[in-house]
């Protein structure tokens, strides 16, 4: 268990790793995350599961090297082991037939979005996926997303690929064009904040998946707390998905800086 089966770089700092975790592969659902630790002195960090293969007994994680832990994880080679992989954690995504669903992801947020895209499509929704990144290299998993979407919109900040503009420009164009019944957004907190503001304006129900600071990930520490609809909630056991229109993103952004 915990052996790295394969690794593929999407860009210099973003790697897709496939990890042997048969029990988690079997029980995980879209929206779930795992807690991973690398090395006996490593920290526990949450990573949302991007995919799973129950036959091979593996789960797929997409990791962006931003801090010491994610750098250690992306440096692991196939055949090496993660010290701990625990899960699946959190509440699974609520999937139903809404009609037309816009799934918008930014950066590595596209990875956890992929299983939701698949499930929304399988539930009979018309799925329009909006993928965004600063530049062409940061658009990931495009082919897999295309396979399960009715339409894919690509947005880059610099216009190096797809349409030049932010994720919100892409989503707004879709909303202006046709009736959208539901929206799912996963990406950096600042991106989700602006997607939420936009879809609120158009009254499109929206869920977001929050990646807050966690220690145990099982409800014990409360480091992940966020304010949703005026109440303190624990992302690890009550989330990670919440009604995006009710999340206090400014507080969440502030809390993400706690150890910086």
């Amino acid at each position: 268990m915990n052996r790295i089966v394969s690794k593929e770089y999407f860009s210099e700092k973003v790697a897709k790793i496939v990890v042997e975790a048969p029990l988690i592969a079997r029980s995980r659902r879209p929206g779930h995350f795992v807690i991973v630790r690398c090395g006996d002195k490593g920290e526990r960090i949450p990573l949302t599961i991007a995919d799973a293969d129950t036959e091979r007994g593996t789960i797929t994680l997409v990791v962006q090297a931003v801090g010491p832990s994610t750098t250690k994880i992306t440096a692991l080679e196939p055949g090496e082991y993660l010290t701990d992989v625990v899960g699946p954690l959190g509440q699974a995504t609520h999937i139903e037939h809404y009609g037309t669903v816009v799934c918008c992801g930014g950066g590595v947020g596209v990875a956890p979005l992929l299983p939701i895209i698949k499930a929304m499509k399988a539930a009979g929704n018309r799925v329009i996926s909006v993928l965004a990144g600063r530049t062409k290299e940061l658009i990931i998993l495009e082919d897999e997303v295309r396979k399960h979407s009715d339409e894919v919109v690509i947005m880059t900040d610099d216009g190096s690929y797809g349409t030049k503009g932010l994720v919100t420009n892409g989503v707004e164009a879709v909303i202006n064009r046709e009736k959208v019944d539901f929206c799912v957004t996963i990406g950096p907190a600042i991106m989700m904040k602006f997607v939420a503001l936009l879809t609120k304006k158009y009254e499109v129900p929206t869920i977001c998946s929050l990646n807050t600071i966690m220690v145990d990930g099982t409800g014990m520490c409360g480091a992940c707390r966020v304010t949703v609809d005026g109440k303190t909630r624990f992302v690890c056991v009550e989330g990670p998905e919440f009604d995006a229109h009710k999340v206090d993103f400014d507080q969440m952004l502030m809390r993400l800086r706690a150890y910086k």
Binding site: C221, G222, M254, R255
Partner: peptide, 11 residues
């Protein structure tokens, strides 16, 4: 209570 620097004893 959700300001940075405030945490549970568990954490």
């Amino acid at each position: 209570e959700n300001l940075n620097g405030i945490m549970s004893s568990n954490e």
